[in-house]
Amino acid sequence: MTDYNFAYLDEQTKRMIRRAILKGLAIPGYQVPFASREMPMPYGWGTGGVQVSAAVLTPDDTFKVIDQGADDTTNAVSIRTFFERTAGVETTTATSEASVIQTRHRIPEEPLTEDQILVYQVPIPEPLRFLEPRESETRKMHSLEEYGLMHVKLYEDISRHGHIATSYAYPVKVEGRYVMDPSPIPKFDNPKLGDMPAIQLFGAGREQRIYALPPYTQVVSLDFEDHPFEASKADHACGLCGATDSYLDEVIMDDQGGRMFVCSDTDYCEARRAAGHKGKDAA
């Protein structure tokens, strides 16, 4: 063990964050202010998610971190190491074995269970921010349920691009009440937000907000009657594992225009390859 308290934060701070989490769970989609602490990493690297994870971790947990779906990118590796050193918890890259999963910009492909907690890193928690810069006004809009402005953004999308071009951080309405920013996950993941058996917690460190979705919450993506919501992905199969149902990253292979599409969820892709599935680009 180290000289740090379990999971880096002191117990009083964790209590404060847990209270914010409980309030967030009691009012799904409502942004609860909390006294965000300075963490040993820059803002924008997941300081909110790390604090939420620290508050919910127990010594028996198994921890997994993904960044854009991958377990092996800088952000994921450094946060995983951080908790290995300060909390001494087990870590894993297998979605099904983890009890707490911290994620940046993706929901794992494998369905989650009631025994799991999904922690999101959120850069800008306020879905109305770019339409209404005043915090006092957006709070009033949330409290009075005035969400017409959110549709103005979608209207602008259609009038400019002919379809709703927002492809990530796509706004959702929670239990018919609060409009929520699901963090910058691709809209392909939006349908997974609703009715999920796992607890979903959202932490925004710089903006000092925590919000949450309890298990089996109703989550609806906003749209127009004549331009319905569509969960989109690249129209290809994974080049490595051949999956046609997973969200894909486009990887540029050379400067001759060569490209390849691979699962963004590395664990999902590896598990499929281990089970013998093979894509067209697999060596």
Binding site: V152, F224, E225
Partner: peptide, 25 residues
Amino acid sequence: RMGVSAGGNVGERLMAVGERHYGDI
């Protein structure tokens, strides 16, 4: 709203009172 198109400006009040059909708006 200076950052929103003329159509969006006119449509805002309609959407604020619950209109959800892009073509109508």
